[in-house]
Each structure stands twice: as C-alpha cells, then as structure tokens.
Design a protein around this nucleic acid. Sequence first.
DNA 1: CTAGGATCCTGTCAGC
DNA 2: TGCTGACAGGATCCTA
Length: 286
Amino acid sequence: MPELPEVETIRRGLQDYILKKKIKQIDILCEKSFIGQPCVGTVENIRRFGKALVLDLDNSNSLMIHLRMTGQLIYDGKERYAAGHPSDNFTDHLPNKQTRVILHFEDGTLFFNDQRKFGFIKIIPTDQVKDEPFIGKLAKEPWEMSPSEFYQKLQKHPKSCIKAVILDQTVICGLGNIYADESLFAAGIHPLKKAGLLSQEEAKRLLEEARKVMDKSIASGGSTMATYVRADGSRGDYLEKFAQVFRREGKPCLKCGSKIIKIKVAGRGTHICPTCQKDFSKEAHD
DNA sequence: CTAGGATCCTGTCAGC
DNA sequence: TGCTGACAGGATCCTA
C-alpha cells in the first residue's frame, strides 16, 4: 500500500514525534508481525530505504518497519499522527483489532496496525541494515537513476511487461501499484508493452514521469494523507485529486476524454486510458 | 537465469 | 439474509 511517497511522508512526520525519544516498552500482539528479539532504546535516526523505514536506536540495533499492503503507523500523544493504509480507523480508539505491535514512548504511543499481517517490524543490528536481504537488493530510486541506466535495466527483462518491471524493486525502487499506473499514463505507455520494446526515449520519459508524480505526491504529503487527525473523523482523499487513472475506471480521461478502463497486468489491477496508452503488446520482437 | 502464478492474511463488496 | 468469489496502494517463493 504505502509506496515511496507515503513512506517518506511518514518518515518526515514521525521525526517530529519520536526522534530522540526513548522506547520504554514493546508489546507484541501478533507474533508474525515482529521478527527478532525486542529491545528498547532511544530513536537516534529515522531512515527510509525504498518503502521500508528504519529506526536506528542508541543500542546498536535498528527497527526495520515495512507496511506492505495494509500497514499503518499511528502515533498517539498530545496529538495524533496517522499514516499508511488509509482507513476510517485512523481515529479509532487504540489498540484496535488490527493493532499488531505497540511501541511505548515516554510521552506517547506508536501503534503498528496491519489488517492483512503482510507487514512487519524486524530487529536488525544497525551495522547490518544494508545486508538485510530486502534492503540489500533495492535498486536506486528514480531520482538517482539516469535514463540510460534505466533503459539498460529494462533490457534485462525484455519479455516482461513494463508494468511488472517497474514494480520490481530490484529494477527501480519506490513505485507501487498507484505510481506505476500513474507514471505509465503520464508517459503514454501501455502497461502490457514488453520492457525490451521501449525506446530510449520512452524509457527516459517514463523515468521522468515517475519522478514527477512522486515529487508531486511527496510535496502534498503522500496520496494517503499524512495527517489524518480531524476530530470529526472526516477523511481527506488526496488520491482523488491526484490520480489521473488510478481507481478512475469508467470516468473520462483527463487528457482526451476517453473512458478509463481497468485491466489486469502482472496480477495487479491496472488502470489505463485506451486512447493515450496504445497497446503494442502484440508487437513482435524482431 | 527469466517470467508468471500462487501465496501469505483479513476484510469488504458485488452478485446471486 | 447468507453464501461465494473476486479483489486489495507488497514482496517472496515455487515452478516450468
């Protein structure tokens, strides 16, 4: 669920609440959601690697947090700061049914909620964070990758459709289902197009559009809304203002007016404008 | 090695 | 109403 812009938003937001604060106690409500031996300490640093957050403690251990599809982090102190998988329970009384881990701080509480239990918190020695399998394999983020480097990477998966390739965090890091669809639409590329058939120009355009949609999202605090604190429980839905195609099936394309359609690509729901994104997936390799 | 599909888990929603 | 299957903002494992 949370993709790079959301996790970056969470990272920045949490800095205001838990940086330099001591974790006094950790409650594990779901064994599956916590890997390793829990240990307490002061949060010295909050880092992000792709869609993963890492809290470095002052005891040479770090907490890696991956929200996967339905994870949420909700800090409850003098005020509430909630981010991650969007849902109405951001204003719930906590812990709730989906709370998996609770980090107790001196002056507040951080709840890790996760409906589907795909996410986790994992203890890693700080000096081994880069060796952690997931983190170690991550490719560069769009801003650090040159167009030619991106193009070269696409050539390594010539027969996979481009959407599957840009969702692969070892090819390019940070895109998830929303930003993959939005980037492909912005670049005018059909998600089923074979990665090996993209021209250098198309690869460059796709990379630049990926940067743009994620920059825009980060600037607005992530499409899932970072500060969901309203007392009336109302949900700001930035996704609705932001998305050109995602969850807009049946609605008119904002560029050409054609109806946005939803198809399945790489096992994921995929939104396209059939006019702006021509299907060359049947095109043969020469 | 690659590519595609199943899988982990809980909840919601559309369709009968 | 109750059941059933499809699907979900991710990543890994298994198979051919």
